[in-house]
Simulated assay, not measured.
Amino acid sequence: MTDHILTETADRLTTVTFNRPDKKNAITQDMYQAMADAVNAYATDEEARALMFTGNGDYFTSGNDLQDFATGPRGDGLPPVVQFLHAIKDCPKPLIAAVNGPAIGVGLTLTLHCDLVYAAGSATFAAPFVKLGLVPEAASSMLLPAIIGMAAANDVFMTGRSLTSEEALRMGLVSRVFEDGEFAGETGALAQLVANAAPNAMRHTKALVRTQNTEITECMTIEGEIFAAQLGSPEFGESVAAMMAKRPAVYK
């Protein structure tokens, strides 16, 4: 277990908090395992009826901790990141993202599997995979164009630029935006509203809205294979080396 993921259930609401503010809530393999376990536990807990992701500090999450992932997979079986992605994909109950600050990489793509996405005014969203010599993951190559359109998705993916919370709202990527000072109170109240709703009606509503599970699974598999190949590529090596040296990457 890790104290970099905090999980608390109270009043039928489970809150999962990224708790690594000194590292901009960058996610390690141990954190993915804790998150996967938390989502799977929530899915089978009859007392918990809504789950909300949020971040401690100024960031929602800056994405994967590249140095941690460079150590390679740990143990046998599915890697923790894959366990987590399948957990949020298959969860039958409401998932909420309370994006309190920058949501980068998986910080953006995990929100695509959430049923409600709330953003603070200062929140930003980015998927800079190409800048790292990588490709989209979490079925985002399918889900993001479906939400914001192909041209807008290509603008996000291919330039790696950040979207402001208001841009994300206009595009339909987030449900609502709140001023920073009101964010915690507003999102907490809305999450509690979901947690107090009729549970079977909520499950059925989610199932009716999300009907592409097979296609999402197939997309995740294809993305995962390409992503893994790119992790071993010269492009990724150059991207990381350039980032560490604080210089522009040069690709051959």
Score class of each variant (00 low, 15 high):
residue 1 M to I: 14
residue 5 I to Q: 05
residue 8 E to Y: 12
residue 8 E to R: 14
residue 12 R to W: 03
residue 18 F to K: 00
residue 18 F to Y: 06
residue 19 N to G: 03
residue 23 K to F: 07
residue 25 N to D: 01
residue 25 N to T: 02
residue 26 A to P: 00
residue 27 I to R: 00
residue 33 Q to S: 12
residue 34 A to S: 11
residue 39 V to A: 03
residue 39 V to E: 01
residue 41 A to K: 07
residue 42 Y to S: 05
residue 42 Y to G: 06
residue 45 D to E: 12
residue 48 A to K: 07
residue 50 A to V: 10
residue 55 G to K: 01
residue 56 N to E: 01
residue 61 T to S: 02
residue 61 T to P: 04
residue 64 N to W: 10
residue 66 L to K: 06
residue 76 D to A: 09
residue 80 P to V: 03
residue 82 V to P: 13
residue 89 K to G: 11
residue 95 L to N: 12
residue 101 G to V: 03
residue 102 P to H: 06
residue 105 G to H: 15
residue 105 G to I: 01
residue 106 V to M: 13
residue 110 L to W: 12
residue 111 T to R: 09
residue 113 H to C: 12
residue 114 C to V: 09
residue 116 L to Q: 13
residue 117 V to Y: 11
residue 119 A to D: 00
residue 119 A to S: 08
residue 123 A to F: 02
residue 124 T to M: 13
residue 129 F to W: 15
residue 130 V to I: 14
residue 131 K to N: 09
residue 133 G to M: 00
residue 134 L to S: 03
residue 135 V to Y: 05
residue 136 P to V: 04
residue 140 S to P: 15
residue 141 S to V: 05
residue 144 L to T: 06
residue 148 I to R: 14
residue 152 A to F: 10
residue 160 G to F: 08
residue 162 S to H: 14
residue 165 S to T: 09
residue 166 E to A: 15
residue 169 L to T: 10
residue 173 L to E: 09
residue 174 V to S: 04
residue 178 F to V: 10
residue 179 E to Q: 08
residue 182 E to A: 06
residue 188 G to E: 07
residue 192 Q to W: 00
residue 194 V to E: 02
residue 198 A to V: 05
residue 200 N to Q: 09
residue 201 A to K: 07
residue 201 A to L: 02
residue 205 T to W: 04
residue 207 A to E: 09
residue 209 V to A: 03
residue 209 V to K: 05
residue 212 Q to M: 14
residue 213 N to K: 15
residue 215 E to N: 13
residue 219 C to Q: 15
residue 219 C to D: 13
residue 222 I to V: 08
residue 223 E to T: 03
residue 224 G to M: 01
residue 228 A to C: 06
residue 228 A to S: 14
residue 229 A to I: 02
residue 229 A to M: 02
residue 231 L to E: 01
residue 232 G to E: 04
residue 234 P to L: 05
residue 237 G to R: 11
residue 237 G to D: 08
residue 239 S to H: 10
residue 243 M to W: 13
residue 244 M to V: 10
residue 244 M to S: 09
residue 245 A to D: 02
residue 245 A to H: 02
residue 247 R to F: 01
residue 249 A to S: 12
residue 249 A to D: 04
